[in-house]
Write a protein that binds this DNA or RNA. Structure first.
Lengths: 144, 144
DNA sequence: TGCCGTTTCTTGACTCATTCAAGAATTGGC
DNA sequence: GCCAATTCTTGAATGAGTCAAGAAACGGCA
């Protein structure tokens, strides 16, 4: 994580009116460099830089960053929480049923007809989340 | 749960080559009568009928029914597992961010263009799951 | 209808991601 | 630099879900 990165992360935090703390900057860096990583992986990555951060600080940072919309939290059924910094472009995810691998997918139709916010059952919808389930290339191979 | 119901559930189980046990029939009845209920609610409903079922039997039954495709398990981020018997019609769900309420939604475009199984990033996709996030009517009212 | 192997259920312990709580340290406005 | 507010550390607690071993129930077969 170079100095330019640090300044970029600091900007993102300040832009969201969040205090710039070392754990938060490190968490943001770790999520950027480890798309779709779970909390434990992020904790490990953060500790390479700040060996003494508590797991709670990482949980708190992830919660603050998620609430601010700087990172996005995803949690497919049966998985622990995972995080990514690609936000605001309404992309979706493919999840491997076999090994849990996750990859990004742009909406096949571009402007997301399924995803139009509408009024259903009295609900006011503001977001649509799509998860594609299947098998990744590696698992396809190893299973014949 | 009348006798006709019982026979219907029994048929479903046998049709999937599952043994017909009292816990399974009761679980299937409970899920049918409590769409989108979580495991604890289902356990409660089952115990009205079979006061001594173990929670493990309910977990096992739900797993067997899910694996057989008789019930569908859904688990929006931040929620515990929930179950429904409406299967095979590729419908989706709206989830209230405020109270967690869930309602069914048919795909707006009918034949689900976003949901076409395709080959992305080397993944073989076999299912697409859509969750709409928003606020339910009750929560809209109480929040102004 | 009764027997037997297999599956399922009961009981109870256990896991582990996540949350809670209290006090210490850090941040940033003044 | 100072101070109030926020965030971090430490350590315990929560709770959905899983694991394991033995008992009971299911259903194919005689």
């Amino acid at each position: 994580m170079g100095n330019a990165d640090y300044e970029h992360y600091e900007q993102l935090l300040r832009g969201a009116s969040l205090r710039v703390t070392r754990p938060r900057v490190a968490v943001l860096g770790a999520v950027t460099e480890n798309a779709h990583a779970d909390t434990e992986t992020i904790l490990g990555a953060v500790r390479e830089r700040l060996p003494d951060v508590s797991h709670q600080a990482v949980y708190d940072s992830l919660a603050a960053l998620s609430a601010a919309g700087i990172v996005r939290r995803i949690q497919p059924s049966g998985s622990v929480a995972r995080y990514e910094t690609r936000v605001g472009d309404n992309h979706h995810h493919v999840v491997c049923r076999s090994c849990g691998a996750i990859a990004d997918v742009d909406c096949a139709v571009g402007h997301a007809p399924c995803l139009t916010a509408s009024d259903d059952n009295g609900f006011t919808v503001d977001e649509a989340e799509v998860i594609y389930w299947g098998t990744c290339a590696d698992c396809n191979l190893s299973q014949g």
